[in-house]
Every structure is written in C-alpha cells, then in structure tokens.
Design a protein around this nucleic acid. Sequence first.
DNA 1: CAGAAATACAAGTAAAAGCTCGTATTTGTC
DNA 2: GACAAATACGAGCTTTTACTTGTATTTCTG
Lengths: 197, 197
Amino acid sequence: MAERTVRRQARGLKRMAEILDAAESVIAEVGYPDMTTNQVAARAGMSPGSLYQFFRNKEEILDGLVSRYTDERQEFWAAQLAAVSPEVPLEALVGQFVDESVRFKSASPAYWSLLYGTATGDQLVAASQRLHDDIARQVAAMLRRRSPDLPEERALLTGTMALAMVKAVMPMITTTTPERSAELVAELKLMLVRYLS
Amino acid sequence: MAERTVRRQARGLKRMAEILDAAESVIAEVGYPDMTTNQVAARAGMSPGSLYQFFRNKEEILDGLVSRYTDERQEFWAAQLAAVSPEVPLEALVGQFVDESVRFKSASPAYWSLLYGTATGDQLVAASQRLHDDIARQVAAMLRRRSPDLPEERALLTGTMALAMVKAVMPMITTTTPERSAELVAELKLMLVRYLS
DNA sequence: CAGAAATACAAGTAAAAGCTCGTATTTGTC
DNA sequence: GACAAATACGAGCTTTTACTTGTATTTCTG
C-alpha cells in the first residue's frame, strides 16, 4: 500500500541535508513545536511542495534530524572514550565533559532544544528519549573504562543520572550572565565529582 | 486605554476556579502547548465566550494557574520549614523532600508539566521560571534553617541545584516500572545527600 | 424596583499551519 | 535521443484554534 521507496539522486540527498540544516536553524530559534514546515522550506530556499518530496510530514524531519545528530556525534564519543583510562583523575574527566557540553550547547542549540522534549504528550518525547539514551550509553561506556569492574547496569544508571544533572543545569547556564554562568558550571562540576566519587 | 477592572462576583470567582481546574486537567493530559481554550471551556462546562469573560487570552489562564499553584503551596512550604532544625539528619531531610516531591508529582501532574516549560521560545518559559524560583527560594530557606551560618547567596545556589536534580530525575521516575522507579528514587537521594554534605 | 454591571451563550471569524495537487523541468538509463 | 523517475514549484485546500460578537439572562446596588 505504501508508496515504494524512492531512489534518491545526489541532488536529492543534498536537498535533504539543506532541509535539515534549515530545520535545525529554525528549531534553535523557536523550538520544534513552533517550527513551521513552510518556514523551513523558505529558509532552505525551496517551496513547501519540494520539501514534502523528501519528508512525508513534519515528524519525519524531526526523525531525520535526530538520526543525523546521533550519527554525527558518534565520532566525538569515540574520541572521548579513547582518552579515558583508570589513571585519569575524576576531576579532569568531569571538567572536560562539562566544558565540552557547554561548548556544544552553544554550538548546536537545536540539539539541546530537542533533548528537552517537553513534559507531556507530544511526539517530541520519543525523539528526546532517543538522544538521551544515546548519550547515557556513551557516558556509561566511559565510566566502565575508568572502572572496569563496575557492573554495566550500575554504569548505565550512573551515566543516566550524570546526564540528567547536566541537562538540568544547562538551561540556566546559557540564559544568565557570564559570572553566574561560571558559578553554575563550577557548582555542576562539584556536584558531579561528589556524586561519582 | 485598557478596559477597567471588573468587579468579580462570587459566582465569577467560582467560575474562574472551574476554568483553572479544567485547564489543569487538560494540561496534565496533553501539556500546555496542545491545550486548546475550547477544550478547557468544554471541560469546564461552559462556552468559549464565557471563558473569555474571565481570561482575556490563553496565556492569562496559564498565569492564573501558576499563581494559584504558588499560593496553594505556600502553606505546604511553611509546614516543611517549621519541621527543620539543625538537629535533623540530612538523610531524613532529603528523604522526606524527595518522597514528598514524588507524591506531589503524581497528585498534580499539571504542575510538573508547567515546571518543565523549558526548551525554547515559548511563553511557557516565564511561567516555568516563576515556579522554579519559588521552589528554589523555599528550599534555600530550609537549608539556612538547618545551617544558620550558611550565606544566603550560597543557600540559594545550593537550593537551585538541588531542585534541578530533582526536576531532572522526576520524569524518569514517573514513566518507568515501579522497581526501576524505586531504584531511581534511591539514587536521587544518594546524589542529593552526597552533594549537600 | 430599576438600572447597571456581571455573567452566559453559541455561532462565527480570521489566521495559521500542515499538507496536496497539477504541472513543468531536470536527471539517469537504455 | 527517448522514456521514466526524480526533482521542483507555488497556489490553495482543509483543519484547527484562539478569539469575537451580538444578545440574553442573572446578580448586585441604590
């Protein structure tokens, strides 16, 4: 019943990337719920009809964006993982992780906006969950590399909690004065170090 | 220029409360962004026109709800505060605080839904901020009562962070199995105790 | 009781937003 | 070069939704 798959040409793939770029930029400004498909099409320099040639609905754009994010971040996490060993002091690890998160947050605000897939009942929740789980798994892998005898279950729980803390503090960090922001970052690091000790 | 204030009669105040009740129930189900004013009016058993007699727009309903919440919770916090003294062990304090938060979250899901009005660019942010600040102040007051020599600035920061932690973990707690939920609650308490020590 | 203000209603408006349609052009394959 | 598939377009359809309007009823105040 469903239309059969389309054989994308190089032009089409490029076009899809442009759409995702545009969506990313719109989401960074107004968030996914307030993002309109016409707006995305306009910013990508195409008509709504063209956009719907590549994504059957608004949600598919969201899915595409999330997939692209997880793919893109894969190499970053691999590098992070490689740099971890049991000898690395916890403070350094936490410091690097938090600093990198802050940097990434200002570089890719749309990513974070999606990560906060709001409270109730929208389709964002699933997307948010996917991003969250991906990160938590990566953090857990880092923890296990530092403490090889840590059970996997335990590492995953700890990683989940650590990510939750970063997620929780991040919005405050990026919406306040530089001084207070630094204060919050320091406090977040302190919190994480105490927790992970 | 603006229409002058309306002298509400008892009937009207009751009607406003009914509207807020209906809004609360709708928000608990679909969240504020997907809440429609017609839906609220219907659930409150009145016409849209009647609703707009009391709230000039959708956002005023949100504001009304937030105000009512902060008012209602005032007595709760007063009681909490009265029960705190320097002798209370930290574990007990944290345990009570977390347990009460979990209980309140299932009792008033709409409250939490609003508390997460983060992400980007919607009017929810302001409402969320108001709720957050209110709680953080109350927690800070509790901390200062336990440690009278704690500077106010410091208490506020610590309260903010503690609240952030609870907020971060809460969505996970209420969307999983009872066993994992208990696990998460325990971990959250552990986290808080370590942080606040 | 009389007038004014508040409350009540439901049909309806205007704008927004997701998405379609008919058609025209470009690209890949034989 | 020829045919099909993919790409491109933008006007416009459909639905939804916040909000209005005109009018009728109830409550308060003198």
